[in-house]
Write a protein that binds this DNA or RNA. Structure first.
Lengths: 145, 145
DNA sequence: TGAAAAAGTTGGGCACACCCCAAAAATGGG
DNA sequence: CCCATTTTTGGGGTGTGCCCAACTTTTTCA
């Protein structure tokens, strides 16, 4: 895959992660399977791979939740989405259109670019689909424990 | 794949196609293999798949060139690249940085979005890495012959 | 002009991401 | 405590993209 966020997660894994973050708390296999229209077994397997990265923990039969590191990373993913969506609204996109379009390509935009765009827009506090937080300075450089 | 340009070409195929268009004329297997750092046999196989779409013709041992349809499509790809690069320069990217960043995600931006951004920028005639042409109105709706 | 070098193609195979199905296991409400 | 629901396991499939070895074609140049 050709991901540009400092981690080697595929676009699909990023989508799963973002969904888990936005839903919050304990997420069930069925929630993900329903949201993405895939078989639950697909979710189980993909979640197992994500768990190995340390971004989430999966207690079999009891749900999925993000680790502290996963939450920090997910905050970045959400921020990225909102920064890019906001950028698109500068080009005549409605909020909803911007949101949809950003989903298409956000996984392929480098963190460096997101930071730059964020800075150029004056670190906005409000995006098109929610608040924008600016606390991702230490992404992917956290001790394991 | 999750491509958003109205065709179902993967990002990699799009890169190959864009390279062929930018180089112009008859392109050799070796040119592509060198540019992308892959084995020549990989190029041969991928080109065979692209040839089936009618975007280019491949005369074995004698090179690759775009069909009229391929040229029209490639013009869109180049325009897309230049529009997105130009957009990025509005956020503090240098020309070269904008160009590199655009390459990362351009394949995932919908044609609709490119058109909208193009319009919002006033259909610019000059991009960061060359002229921008605006003749892609009839993409992907051309008779085969 | 003809053999060696270079360029290109074929066939086989590998890795990764992502997906589904059937069957088995675990959970939890009645 | 049983049965319906949820979830996991094991097996399998597809598509993309890549490499290697062996072979064919083209080109070069002595």
């Amino acid at each position: 895959m050709e991901i540009s966020d400092g981690r080697e997660l595929s676009a699909q894994k990023v989508r799963y992660l973002k969904f888990i973050a936005e839903k919050g708390g304990r997420v069930r296999t069925t929630d993900l399977a329903g949201e993405f229209g895939v078989d639950p077994s697909t979710i189980t397997k993909t979640i197992a791979e994500l768990a190995k990265t340390g971004l989430l923990s999966h207690e079999p039969y009891h749900g999925i939740c993000l680790t502290a590191e996963g939450q920090r990373y997910a905050r970045y993913l959400v921020k990225r989405h909102r920064i890019l969506s906001l950028m698109l609204t500068h080009y005549g996109f409605s909020h909803e259109q911007a949101c949809e379009e950003a989903k298409r390509f956000e996984s392929y935009v480098s963190k460096d670019a997101v930071d730059r765009i964020c800075a150029a827009m004056g670190h906005p506090g409000q995006g098109v689909c929610g608040e924008i937080t600016h606390d991702d300075g230490c992404l992917a450089r956290e001790p394991a424990g």
